[in-house]
Design a protein around this nucleic acid. Structure first.
Lengths: 275, 275
DNA sequence: CAATCTTTGTGCACACGTTCACAAAGACAT
DNA sequence: ATGTCTTTGTGAACGTGTGCACAAAGATTG
């Protein structure tokens, strides 16, 4: 089962650490801003502040690219912009297809930062025949039937999936079969891909849940209240006991809003049931 | 400079590792799917496959929550759904505001996975007076002027920023001042926040650039061609030399599309200039 | 040309995350 | 009840990422 390629074979040759690669775009953005203000050089300290990272980390990151700085001075902005762009492969043109032109897909198609910096929306694809031909962000939507042809004709190697979760795996399979080797997945599903295909996922729901975790922790710490078995149901130690009641837990009321910082009229919350 | 809280003070008490927290939503999703199919129990192996992770990792992750499994059998699905939900704070109701109702903001407001599982869109906020009152996803858009009042009245502690980059920091400051302590940022900027405020960022452009890096690497490895100083300009070792030409490098043509796997008519690519 | 000052590049130690591999727990059959 | 079989929970080894602290490089000044 080749699910998502977990283990990377330790980036070969002059491998740049994954964590560094993930930060390069951040540096590049900060550098581009400096470049536009015609700032000639920048120190690791300044650039690090602009990118929101530690300066030692930044210097180490750059050291993987080579020694592009000048001691006592800093880094040449323009030169560094070029080096990072080259390292990230942004001096090439990357045609991208977006599959699934719903609200999100349309938003992505319109997103400016998308088109800049080497990426070009080569095609918009949707399964709805009614969408076909309708222009979104100035680009006519094409039907899924032509997916393979579109990929090949445009030499697309990066695909963006913005379909509902149910369709994602199928779309993914077709993209991969047609030659796409990098996928940016916005659908809330785990995609299975063969070796050699990269998948990155963007999941709003997951991000929110992570925030909620920390938020709960923050709220629980000061008062040290919500620990232990907060009045909840479910047998203390025996998990199998849950089989008794088919509706196990969650209820106990999708209770009070946590951040009751400022006095808030109680009961005005529609209490949305989770799932 | 409190930029993004880099060092966490080592998650206190019975701290759950950050990496584990980030995976819990993934497990929860897989478990919910099983629950809907009325599957009573699941083994770490099966669940790991569904979530796209290593089974040992999953077991270790669960071990931080306590011992909820039964050896020789596996985990009780319903019970685990509840435990994870509780740990993530999803048994509470989290009102969320979305600021910036452009294409992306509207897409987020309409996003289904957003509303489910404890999160509730409490308000949509935009700076454009023309938007005020106009309903998006059934919720009337309110003006930025009322931001503080909206936050307080609804007890909002989680804010989503979907504004243009230029407005993001300002909006962030106001959200934080009004009491928001968790921010999900879609604007391509580094946000500065005081201690105690969590920021998570979702950046399409960065994700694409990371994919491009790997894509380039894939393309460069087989032929072992594009290494070294690929015909580029710029002085070999002296960075300062770049000061000579104000337009340093990038040119050399925003050249040929990389994935020329299948023979593709050359020159049909509009050659988008990066910056 | 020597002294001083700034800032890079990196060795080292430590923290965090991942994976292996296996003992122990429990289910289940006989 | 005893033995076998499955699957968890975790100790330990390893790999990756982070941050300190400092030597060495080069600019700059007198």
């Amino acid at each position: 089962m080749a699910t998502g390629r977990t283990h990377r074979p330790a980036t070969r040759s002059r491998g740049i650490p994954e964590a560094t690669v993930a930060r390069l775009p951040l540096y590049l953005r900060a550098l581009t801003a400096l470049s536009e203000r015609s700032v000639p050089t920048v120190s690791s300290e300044e650039l690090a502040a602009a990118a929101g990272v530690n300066s030692a980390k930044l210097r180490k990151d750059f050291s993987y690219l080579g020694s592009y700085g000048t001691r006592g001075v800093g880094y040449d902005v323009e030169y560094l912009v070029y080096q990072i762009s080259r390292e990230l492969g942004l001096t090439q043109d990357w045609p991208v297809v977006i599959v699934g032109i719903g609200n999100l897909g349309a938003a992505l198609a319109n997103y400016g930062g998308f088109a800049s910096r080497g990426f070009r929306v080569a095609a918009l694809i949707d399964a709805d025949p009614a969408m076909a031909g309708k222009p979104v962000a100035g680009i006519p939507v094409q039907h899924t039937d032509d997916l393979e042809k579109i990929i090949e004709d445009n030499g697309v190697s990066i695909g963006v999936i913005a379909t509902p979760a149910g369709a994602a795996q199928q779309v993914c399979d077709r993209l991969v079969a047609a030659g796409v080797t990098s996928i940016l997945n916005f659908a809330p599903t785990v995609l299975s891909v063969p070796d050699g295909v990269d998948v990155r996922k963007v999941d709003l729901s997951i991000e929110l849940q992570i925030l909620a975790f920390h938020e709960q922790r923050k709220a629980g710490e000061p008062t040290a209240a919500a620990h232990g078995v907060a009045g909840a149901p479910a047998a203390p130690t025996a998990p199998a006991a849950a089989a008794a009641a088919s509706a196990p837990a969650a209820p106990a009321a999708a209770a009070a809003t946590p951040g009751s910082r400022k006095g808030r009229p109680e009961g005005d919350v529609p209490a949305v049931m989770p799932a």
